[in-house]
Design a protein around this nucleic acid. Sequence first.
DNA 1: CGAACTGTTGAATATCCTCAATTTCAGTGG
DNA 2: CCACTGAAATTGAGGATATTCAACAGTTCG
Lengths: 246, 246
Amino acid sequence: MPEFPLNRFSDMVELSPEEAEMLRVLGEPPVRYRRHAVIRREGEPVKGIYLMIAGWACSSIMLPSGLRQIVKLHLPGDMLGTPSMALSHAADTLFALTDCTIAFVPMARVRALFEQSPRMIALFLAFVQYERVALMDIVALIGRSSARERYATFLIDVHSRLLRAGLGEEDRFELPLTQEQIGDVLGLTMVHTNRTVRALEREGLIARSGPLVILRDPAAIRRISPLPKRTPAFGLDWLPRAAADG
Amino acid sequence: MPEFPLNRFSDMVELSPEEAEMLRVLGEPPVRYRRHAVIRREGEPVKGIYLMIAGWACSSIMLPSGLRQIVKLHLPGDMLGTPSMALSHAADTLFALTDCTIAFVPMARVRALFEQSPRMIALFLAFVQYERVALMDIVALIGRSSARERYATFLIDVHSRLLRAGLGEEDRFELPLTQEQIGDVLGLTMVHTNRTVRALEREGLIARSGPLVILRDPAAIRRISPLPKRTPAFGLDWLPRAAADG
DNA sequence: CGAACTGTTGAATATCCTCAATTTCAGTGG
DNA sequence: CCACTGAAATTGAGGATATTCAACAGTTCG
């Protein structure tokens, strides 16, 4: 049985065995979604959140013009759909970019977790704040940098996230997105995304074959990217203590 | 003595008198900042969060190119600097757009609040998720819409936030931002921001005199804006119960 | 009255988009 | 094995939007 990877939490704090267990039993039995399946559509009532166990998904917002903006790429270990927790109707659409495995968590279970452990609420909060910083970075990226800078940032971000998730290798990774989808992440058209990709390729900074991306000059790519690395603070000192007993 | 407005929380849930009191005594004594003062610079160690009591401030990220992106405008009742809670060094700079009054909350006090009331952690979490949705909307706005659409969205967003905060009138409000700063919010240059503003003015959708903005045709402006209104869910059913006693 | 900041506009340029055509490739059915 | 199909990638050409550079006007402040 596939399990929800806990690295996203344990990046920030040491989980007690009890806490790890709470997370392990949080989700309902995992469900498989087909590539291109809609997991939840924006505007639908919010019934719960989702734990990404395997595959790639994304969260997107559709504008009246028909244009789509992908707001977050989701990899195994991510929690999906949580921003809409504070809304009655979902703000974003959750979409399977590849076949994927996802466990649903009804809000009642979230509540049970929260009643059981204040510390888990606080951990959840820390996790969400970290995601918020990531979004702030994206606003700065899209608002104030060129297509080239955006794409370079995209590459190193996805690569480093894959490495942390234990997927991907030192200098290469599989990117199961079409260029149109990459454009939807970066706020660019498909055509301009293609030109940007081809330019980096011609310059020898990257190479591609099918979905495989090879970073031929990671240092140069990093130099193009205008965003700093953010590292979560480990062992947050403002968390409540672990529960008195188990 | 000026007080921290609680509407941001009470928008989502009914605060018990004890909870309202916890928030009221959360901050240290308010401090006044001068217009253009830096409240906290990005990269500095994170020591606490801030409660906005009066005035306007913003949170911004500086890119190596020297360009700045304003990521959030802060009005009275907002909590500033919380995204960096999960980091050791602040991601964003907090900057006073006007003279303002702000109460500092050291992380130790945040921790005390959290240990005292799990429900307050969860409320805080809901608040943060709502902010996250706002950021997602901004990503979609900046990534996929025109200067005109961005500016129209900016106007109705600021106006509605001022109304909720009990500032501003039905069809007008004071906007103490330079056009350069508005450009930093919208991801545009000062020059193009100016042209965009002037265009709406020439078309009779808005009028201006000094910092005063008059919405001459709010419906038309709303029609230009591509983002939907988001309303926080009231009475979130996943919150832990209020503490058994006071 | 001069300095500094903000707003405003014109002209030239750059970046990115739209439209359109063509190529590549994986999957399907004959 | 090969044509056929549809999705995705690629490229050219022309156009739209936004930027850059530059100049100047209006305000505020000392």
